[in-house]
């Protein structure tokens, strides 16, 4: 079950095609049973704990209310993986600043994830986070981010933070993969396989 995190403060549903696209990718490359449609998991409700892999994105400031903060803390303590992607791809933007602060408050400080981390070889082989066509599109910080950030607990990624704007990169109808020479959602398979096996 692929779940998108819903939070009170911002535009949590800014990339509506991403869940369907990732579900399609997982079903296409693996035999992992996956529900055909994603779900929305409100961070303020305890039922968000039923989805051990959560995808969180947006452009606007992220400010967790008390219930959201408590649940995110419990989520990572219990072994969930929260994947946060900056839809602005801007390290000076409000999403980045506010989201990293909230993550630090709820789960701990983010640190650079080494590019030889098992995440990058859990299914497809990558030399680090795959580049996106959004990073140098004139918007955002116009930087190619060579590393993802992560909060790790007991040697496992609890929160994975990306400034690479996968939310834009993967926000298209799965049918349109046929027009791509190389499927740009393959990294999502690594993420799912890592979450399920690490």
């Amino acid at each position: 079950m692929f779940a998108t995190a819903q939070y009170e403060s911002g535009d949590w549903d800014s990339a509506p095609f991403v869940p369907a696209n990732i579900i399609d990718t997982i079903a296409r490359y693996t035999e992992i049973p996956v529900a055909p449609i994603g779900v929305v998991a409100p961070l303020s409700e305890e039922r968000m704990l039923r989805y051990p892999l959560l995808y969180l994105t947006g452009h606007l400031p992220v400010r967790f209310n008390a219930a959201e903060q408590r649940n995110v803390r419990r989520f990572v303590e219990r072994g969930g993986l929260l994947f946060v992607d900056d839809h602005d791809h801007d390290v000076d933007g409000v999403f980045h600043k506010s989201a990293t602060e909230e993550i630090a408050r709820a789960a701990g400080p983010l640190a650079e994830l080494p590019n030889d981390h098992p995440l990058y070889s859990s299914f497809f082989k990558f030399d680090g986070p795959p580049a996106t066509s959004q990073e140098l599109n004139g918007w955002g910080d116009n930087l190619v981010h060579t590393h993802l950030l992560a909060v790790q607990r007991e040697g496992r990624i609890a929160v994975l933070y990306s400034s690479k704007d996968y939310s834009s990169e993967w926000n298209y109808h799965p049918e349109n993969k046929r027009f791509l020479a190389v499927d740009n959602t393959r990294f999502a398979v690594n993420l799912a396989v890592y979450a399920l096996t690490a």
């Binding site: 051990p52 072994g79 399920l196």
Partner: peptide, 11 residues
């Protein structure tokens, strides 16, 4: 199979 059950049993 890769699953939440397997992950959390191992964990």
């Amino acid at each position: 199979r890769a699953s939440w059950e397997g992950k959390y049993v191992a964990t």
